[in-house]
Amino acid sequence: MSVKKLPEGAYAALEGLKAQAGAAMLMLPGESRESQAEGKRALAAAHARIRENEAWATQIVKTIMTGSEQISIDSADAEWLERTFADPST
């Protein structure tokens, strides 16, 4: 079992951001009504998760947008999160 190096909210925020991206893809024009409805439900759940961990979500997005690394919400994972935000002395 791996030891998490960050507060649980950091991982939850990243999961929420990833879920938001996935939900948005379900709501693209041309998708079925069922997919669009599923996307709306998934988006609401993702937004709730992001809202619960807003400080971490903001930090993650800001780092991705201003960072020199070629990273996106889709490619970001727990390893990237820890490498980017964990205290190197731990």
Rank of each mutant, 00 (worst) to 15 (best):
I73M: 13
S35L: 09
I64S: 07
R49A: 15
A10Q: 06
Q59M: 10
L43F: 14
S89C: 04
V3R: 08
R33S: 02
H47N: 13
E52F: 00
R51H: 15
Q20D: 07
L26I: 03
G16T: 09
L43C: 05
A10H: 13
A78C: 00
N53S: 08
G30Y: 03
K18Y: 01
I50V: 11
V61K: 13
Q36F: 05
A48N: 06
P7F: 03
A45D: 15
G22Y: 04
Q20L: 14
V3F: 08
A37D: 11
E69N: 10
P88T: 06
K62C: 10
A86V: 11
I60Q: 05
P88A: 06
A19T: 02
E79M: 10
T63N: 00
H47C: 00
S89H: 09
A48G: 08
A37H: 10
W56T: 14
S89P: 01
M1L: 14
A86Y: 00
S2R: 08
A45H: 07
L43E: 08
R41E: 11
P88N: 03
A78P: 02
A76K: 02
E15S: 15
M27Y: 01
A24R: 14
R33Y: 06
T66Y: 12
E38H: 13
G30T: 08
D74N: 07
E82A: 09
I73R: 13
E31G: 08
L81K: 06
E38F: 07
A46K: 02
Y11K: 03
A78K: 07
A46I: 04
G30M: 11
T58P: 00
G39Y: 12
K5M: 12
E82C: 07
T66Q: 10
I64L: 15
A23T: 11
E34D: 12
I73S: 05
A46C: 05
A55L: 10
L17T: 05
D77F: 02
D87C: 03
D77Y: 02
E8A: 14
A44C: 04
Q20S: 13
E34K: 04
M65A: 07
Q70F: 09
